[in-house]
């Protein structure tokens, strides 16, 4: 992409900002799974997230919260209803459009880290940028290293993903999710298999990210330590929003 093209794109995105009230807006979402019989997992979900907010989604396993998260992240499509991300309707986009949207707008952090074991920590962090088909300049590399510094994993930047502790892997995944300055960071049980200390570190990081970059955070968690510190807790029960509490 040429410099001017990037510039135009940035201007466009600034314009877009004025066009939407919520960074994520779910309208009347139903989700069915078909495995022989149709099972409804989400029932008429209406949910909005303000840009720059810190949110958690809690609920028992099987409540549909992961499905909700996957729909939020455009990895899954609702059976019915509308999904708007940063003002754009996504439930009707093509797979390739969604891929671009995810690459540019959404950062993912999963419970099982999901680093690419073939790559070093730094290369993993750079991957979203590479996927955007832009040239990795020394400036971009510097940005990645700065991100890793910010997250406290610069020492292991040249380690293969498999040669890191769970906490380091998760923090690498977080650095990676931030590489393209996403508007939204989606985390699905990000501390699910981390110890208490690492959990606190990850949470504090989320807070710092939110403050430093203004990233909207949506975290699925069963960890009270995490949820109690977010500004909003959404409890999903039986595929419905059971509670929606603001701090």
């Amino acid at each position: 992409m040429s410099k001017s093209a990037v510039k135009i794109k940035n201007e466009e995105s600034i314009k877009e900002k004025e066009d939407y009230e919520y960074i994520v807006d779910l309208k009347h979402i139903d989700k069915f799974y078909y495995t022989g019989v149709a099972t409804q997992v989400l029932f008429d979900i209406n949910l909005q997230f303000k840009a720059g907010s810190v949110n958690s989604i809690v609920g028992p396993s099987g409540s549909g919260k992961s499905t909700l998260m996957n729909i939020l992240g455009t990895l899954d499509k609702p059976t019915k209803g509308e999904v708007y991300i940063a003002g754009k309707r996504t439930d009707q986009m093509s797979k390739n459009e969604l891929a671009i949207l995810r690459n540019q707008t959404i950062g993912f952090v999963f419970q099982f880290h999901y680093l690419l074991p073939e790559y070093t920590a730094l290369e993993n962090v750079l991957m979203p940028f590479e996927i955007s088909r832009q040239k990795v300049t020394s400036k971009v590399k510097e940005k990645a290293i700065n991100l890793m510094k910010f997250i406290g994993i610069e020492d292991v930047k040249d380690n293969l993903a498999t040669k890191m502790s769970g906490g380091q892997q998760q923090r690498t995944a977080i650095a990676r999710s931030l590489m393209n300055n996403p508007k939204i960071l989606l985390a699905d049980e990000p501390t699910g298999n981390l110890d208490t200390e690492a959990t606190d570190k990850v949470y504090n990081l989320f807070r710092e990210i939110n403050e430093k970059f203004g990233t909207t955070l949506i975290v699925i968690t069963h960890e009270r330590r995490i949820a109690e510190k977010t500004d909003r807790i959404i409890e999903i029960r039986d595929g419905k929003i059971h509670l929606d509490l603001y701090k």
Binding site: G73, L75, K95, N96, A99, I100, L101, R102, N103, Q104, F108, Y114, L115, L116, P117, E118, M127, P128, I131, S132, R176
Partner: peptide, 13 residues
């Protein structure tokens, strides 16, 4: 797994 991650991160088909 790797393909899943890459696709989540936005590589196209």
């Amino acid at each position: 797994r790797q393909l899943g991650i890459l696709k989540a991160m936005g590589i196209n088909n």
